[in-house]
Every structure is written in structure tokens, then in C-alpha cells.
Nucleic acid binder design. Structure first.
Lengths: 116, 116
DNA sequence: CCCATACATTGATGTATATCAATATCAGGG
DNA sequence: CCCTGATATTGATATACATCAATGTATGGG
């Protein structure tokens, strides 16, 4: 650790940094990491992509299991992760569960990177 | 799987989708997931934040180990992950290793979300 | 009511990853 | 040349996670 002379106690939140938080706190970081964890899997990225690319903007599990070459439970698991991350919305109609992008969620996530 | 009548063989890359890839391929997805994997850890997010918030735009390992309350090898490990993800740049000057944000890397990563 | 279908949950398993302790490398100073 | 300080690497360990097989749940049709 390079030691530099400290002129003031600098109790943080001192007089000269009005609004912008100096750096990410542990809790904030933990929160944000959750979204990126959800994005940190190739198959989940593909799920988001397929849902987004779909004509109707939604897709059911049965339409997602084949293009990913994964078992149905695995796809259900990934979709749950994406829903819990706030990226996908789930709506059950009849026997089917339709997943769609949460409006603005991807843009908001992109914004997290700008405000690091 | 809901079956719908297929009117054309649709060999993909057919005549009517000029440029935009319909959905993310496995290799592309794998590549992109690497960056998000690097971001999927609270301590790595904090590292990026601290480096970005610094006056000089760079920081050495010795200045990063204390705010994160992590051992030096662990911090070195996280920094390596961020460098390999293309988010941080490493420059060794004398005994110290200075890490700085790769210009435009965060913006480019944000762009990945827009083009899913 | 029973059956088939779509989806979710559980349990098990292999792999990845976060962390630390110990050690290695490497540059600068005496 | 050795010694010190800064960083990197290695080995070990515990936890997290991706995946599947098996099972559970629920919905609609006969």
C-alpha cells in the first residue's frame, strides 16, 4: 500500500461530493450482480434472444426446448432464473406458460453499466 | 409442442431476412456470456467501480485489496478475470500493476444487450 | 373420473468458481 | 548479491450452478 499524506480526516460524505456515490457499496454490488448472473449463461442469452425475436414477443416452454437442445426441466429452470432477475415476464394461459421480455428491463440493465 | 402448418421448407437464410440474425447462435451466445460472467460477481463490479471512480482512472492492486476486504491473491484473480473479459487494461510500472478501464468496453457491453 | 399434455419441482451428479494459504516471480534499493 | 515489497500463480476446499431423470401439479378433453 502506497501511503500518501492525508490532510483531512475525510469522514467520507464530506463537504465536496454533493450527489454521485464515490463507488459501489457491497449491497448495491450484490444486487446488480444478480442480473448479470442471470445473463452469464449462453443458454439464457439465447432464450432472451429467441423470445425477443419472436413475432408475438412471447414464447412458451415447448417452443424453447428444441432450439436449445436442452431438456424441458432445464429450460424451465433457466426461465425461472430470468424471471427472478426481472428480465422475463411469465403469463400462464391454459396449459401453456408464455414468457415475454419485461419492457425496458434490458435497457435498464445496460444502464447499470453506465453508472458503475 | 404446438404444431403449426409449415408452408415452406424454410431452409433458414432464405430470401426474406436480409441482414439481421434471427436469434443468437450457440457460439455467439457463448462469447457474450463470457463478458457477463465477468460482471456476475459483486466484488468484480466493485473493482470496476473503484477503478472508474479514481481520480487518475487507474488503481493498483494494493489500493483495491482493502476496500473489498479480500486477500491480495483473490483480488489479483478477479482483476485477471476482468482483463481477460476485455473490461480492464493492465499496465505494469515498476513493482506496481495499474489497472484501468478499457475505453468503450462498458458501453460496448451495454450494446450487447440491445442487440440480443 | 380418467387420461394426456404442458410445465414445475425435487434429487442427484459433475463441473465451475470464489476464496485463502503458501509459494513463486520480479523489480528496486542497499 | 541479498532483502524487501508488490503482484502473480498454485493447491486445496467449500460452495454454487447446469443438467438430467424422475416425479409432482394442473389444465383441458373425452
Amino acid at each position: 500500500m502506497k501511503l500518501l499524506p492525508v490532510l483531512e480526516p475525510a469522514t467520507d460524505e464530506s463537504c465536496c461530493t454533493p450527489a454521485g456515490p464515490p463507488a459501489l457499496g457491497p449491497e448495491e454490488a450484490q444486487q446488480r450482480a444478480l442480473v448479470f448472473k442471470a445473463l452469464a449463461d449462453p443458454n439464457r442469452l439465447r432464450l432472451l434472444s429467441i423470445v425477443k425475436a419472436g413475432e408475438s414477443g412471447e414464447a412458451c416452454v415447448c417452443d424453447l426446448t428444441e432450439p436449445l437442445d436442452l431438456g424441458q426441466p432445464t429450460v424451465s429452470h433457466h426461465l425461472k432464473v430470468l424471471v427472478e432477475a426481472g428480465l422475463l415476464h411469465r403469463e400462464k394461459r391454459g396449459t401453456w406458460a408464455y414468457y415475454s421480455l419485461v419492457p425496458g428491463a434490458l435497457e435498464q440493465t445496460a444502464g447499470l453499466l453506465a453508472t458503475l
